[in-house]
Amino acid sequence: MPTPELQLSGIHHLTAVSANIRENKRFYTQDLGMRLVKRSVNQDDTSAYHLFYSDKVGTPGMDLTFFDWSVGRERRGSHSVTCTALRVRDEASLRYWQGRFQELGIQHAEITERGGRLTLDFEDPEGQRLALVVDGGAGDPPVPWERSPVPAEYQVRGLGPITITIPTLANTDKVLQQVMHLRPVREYPDPTSPAHTVHVYEMGAGGPHAELHVAVRPDMSPVQSGAGGVHHVAFRTPNEQEYHAWNEHLSHFGLHSSGEVDRYYFRSLYFREPNGVLFEIATDGPGFGVDEDMATLGEKTILPPRFESRRAQILAGLKPVD
């Protein structure tokens, strides 16, 4: 039976692709001032790092993560995640970041209002499309990282709206509303093509940490995946009870999914929406402190228990990241 009371509470994490993981670590920890909270491997491809950047403790909804794959650069297009927003508190924070980007030579646009919020677009060295969005203090409060080069009041507060670009809306809209229980709340012109529309959906209590923006662009060619692109976006469910219910709920609607997957730090459930964008539903816990001291998160390579017997072999296949 479908479970109409199930509600996702926001964005859980976003996972992207890097072909230069050493520079990736430098950029996100030094230039963006985020903490590397977990240095592990891709659990489906242990030849590759999986790095997690977040606040001091890896609060759910704060995690920007990367797979380390030696692939060519993404050719941008539809059927994909096309912008990842990171939240900051206020306009003063955006002004700070604008000056920091200028000083560090980071490619960025001007501060603009988009979809009702002040926004500053920028890119990482591999062309990953990012934006800083003012949240006015909304969302779960982050735990500032005292060793960050960015002052606490200006640090990234977590993930904001995620934008996907698709050619047609109807079937995706049905999944978002009828299956995932997201609510359409507003629209705005696509900033890269104002003749087209971005549709905003919210989940849970709403707010910039709980929005999916859907740009409808029938004029764009399909993406060719690669470095500088996004692998998947994950949505939050609070506990394992609701996670199991989501698995049954998706099955009721005939959506093909991965089935339940234990990622050790959270439980995962993967499926593709009708235009092919990979979604994940992930539990808030147990979290990154389950297997290492919170004071030393990210300082050494940690493997989930099922990989420990192969530690020497796995570590020998990884590139130096420091």
Rank of each mutant, 00 (worst) to 15 (best):
E273M: 03
E273D: 14
E273S: 02
E273R: 03
P274L: 12
P274I: 10
P274V: 11
N275E: 15
N275T: 11
G276W: 12
V277L: 05
V277C: 03
V277R: 07
L278D: 07
F279I: 11
F279P: 00
F279C: 11
I281C: 04
I281D: 01
I281Q: 02
I281E: 02
A282Q: 09
T283V: 08
T283H: 06
D284Q: 06
D284R: 09
P286E: 11
P286F: 11
P286I: 08
P286Y: 10
G287W: 08
G287Y: 10
G287A: 10
G287M: 09
F288C: 03
F288D: 08
F288S: 07
F288N: 06
G289I: 09
V290A: 12
V290W: 10
D291M: 15
D291Q: 12
E292A: 12
E292H: 06
D293M: 06
D293S: 13
D293C: 14
M294N: 07
M294D: 14
A295Y: 06
T296F: 12
T296M: 04
L297Q: 14
L297Y: 14
G298P: 05
G298N: 07
E299P: 01
E299N: 15
E299M: 13
E299C: 00
E299S: 13
K300A: 13
K300T: 13
K300W: 06
T301W: 04
T301H: 03
T301S: 03
T301N: 02
I302Y: 03
I302P: 00
I302K: 05
L303E: 08
L303T: 07
L303W: 10
L303G: 09
P304Y: 15
P304G: 11
P305G: 09
P305R: 14
P305I: 09
P305C: 10
R306Y: 10
R306Q: 14
R306C: 02
R306T: 06
F307M: 03
F307V: 04
F307K: 11
E308C: 04
E308I: 11
S309V: 12
S309H: 15
R310V: 00
R310I: 00
R310K: 15
R311A: 02
A312T: 08
A312Y: 00
A312S: 12
Q313C: 00
Q313L: 05
I314N: 09
I314L: 03
I314D: 05
L315S: 01
L315Q: 05
L315G: 02
L315P: 01
A316I: 00
A316N: 15
A316Q: 13
G317P: 00
G317W: 01
L318Q: 04
